[in-house]
């Protein structure tokens, strides 16, 4: 039996179309037409203990709604969820003791008081013993460098600092599962790396099962062996990242801006034949390539050495592109 079991899970929101303008507003007072919006549409999956799973999808694809149902915030319209024997919404009081949750965009700490006071409040709410509390704080401090931050009010912390505190807070009560919604959103490179390193240790050393949603494919690449892709409420893919890469050519692109107008002859560069070339206009051209075949560093080196380049931009595949790619192939299988 898996730790997380999800069967045919759906969530339908009721919305209504607002009529516009003054007259429309007056009409809205008296008559409204409601419409169903399927945010999550009959998805099923299971996650085993100790896994670290990435859950990705574009904005509004249904990621957050799924997480909110898994954590007991939202009541499913239909379908079943079982996590560690609990039904999240129904058993919320006991269930929430066994999970930790971090929303990247919102803190769970109390805004106006010092971080350590929030921690002590949480300690009390979750009934954590003094010994366990001290031990865990010590462990987290090793990676997250919390000590300096503990006596600052949350509102004065930077986004990265706040995220570190939030991560620690979510693990104070030793949960068996950690849910993260966009944990790296808005963070700079160093802070991102810090968070990833911490998550890896939490998963490997503390044996916490982790489910995280993200926009950022590099989060997934560095952390998760398994990913699930959701789009328009439906599960498009569930499997290993490597498998996805194998099936989809993951294209990256390099955009060049030239120092002076001119025509570039790609053949003269002696590039791998798999690289696609396009001259966008007199000043700019584009290389589309597969990172697995040609490392981006190599391509950039060749290009910069042989062309009068003013600016180079490297763009990785985005989640939106992967989803588009899946669609254009008519599904993954």
């Amino acid at each position: 039996m898996s730790l997380i079991e999800v069967r045919n899970l759906s969530k339908i929101f009721k919305t209504f179309d607002r009529k516009e303008g003054v007259w429309g507003g007056i009409q809205n007072l008296f008559v409204r037409q409601y419409r169903d919006l399927k945010a999550v549409d009959a998805i099923s999956f299971s996650i085993d203990q100790g896994e670290m799973v990435g859950y990705i999808g574009a904005n509004g694809a249904g990621k957050s709604t799924t997480i909110k149902m898994l954590t007991g915030i939202l009541v499913p319209t239909s379908g079943a969820i079982k996590v560690g024997g609990y039904i999240p919404f129904r058993d919320r009081n006991s269930y929430t003791r066994t999970i930790g949750v971090v929303f990247g965009q919102r803190t769970q700490l109390w805004w106006d008081i010092a971080v350590v006071e929030s921690f002590q409040l949480l300690k009390k709410i979750y009934n954590v013993s003094d010994k366990d509390y001290q031990e865990r704080l010590e462990t987290f401090d090793q990676v997250l460098n919390l000590k300096r931050l503990l006596h600052t009010p949350v509102r004065k912390l930077s986004l990265g600092q706040r995220m570190r505190c939030d991560l620690a807070a979510s693990l104070l009560h030793n949960p068996m599962i950690l849910f993260l919604d966009e944990p790296t959103i808005g963070l700079d490179v160093v802070a991102k790396e810090n968070v990833r390193q911490f998550l890896r240790r939490v998963n490997q050393e503390l044996k916490v099962t982790v489910l995280l949603t993200t926009h950022d494919l590099s989060d997934i690449e560095e952390l998760c062996r398994r990913i699930m892709i959701i789009d328009k409420g439906r599960l498009l893919f569930d499997g290993a990242l490597a498998e996805l890469r194998e099936r989809l050519a993951c294209k990256s692109q390099v955009l060049l801006e030239l120092k002076e107008p001119g025509k570039v002859n790609p053949a003269a560069l002696g590039l791998n034949s798999d690289i696609e070339f396009k001259q966008l206009d007199e000043m700019r051209c584009q290389f589309i390539f597969d990172k697995r075949i040609v490392p981006s560093a190599e391509l950039i080196k060749i290009v910069v050495n042989s062309l009068p380049v003013r600016d180079v931009v490297l763009e990785d595949t985005t989640i939106e592109e992967i989803v588009r790619e899946i669609y254009s192939r008519g599904g993954i299988e």
Binding site: K68, T71, I73, N93, S94, T96, R97, V101, R106
Partner: peptide
């Protein structure tokens, strides 16, 4: 502002 999410995540009514 969606703060109620956090409330529902704690083991208290």
């Amino acid at each position: 502002e969606g703060r109620f999410d956090q409330v529902l995540l704690r083991p208290l009514h």
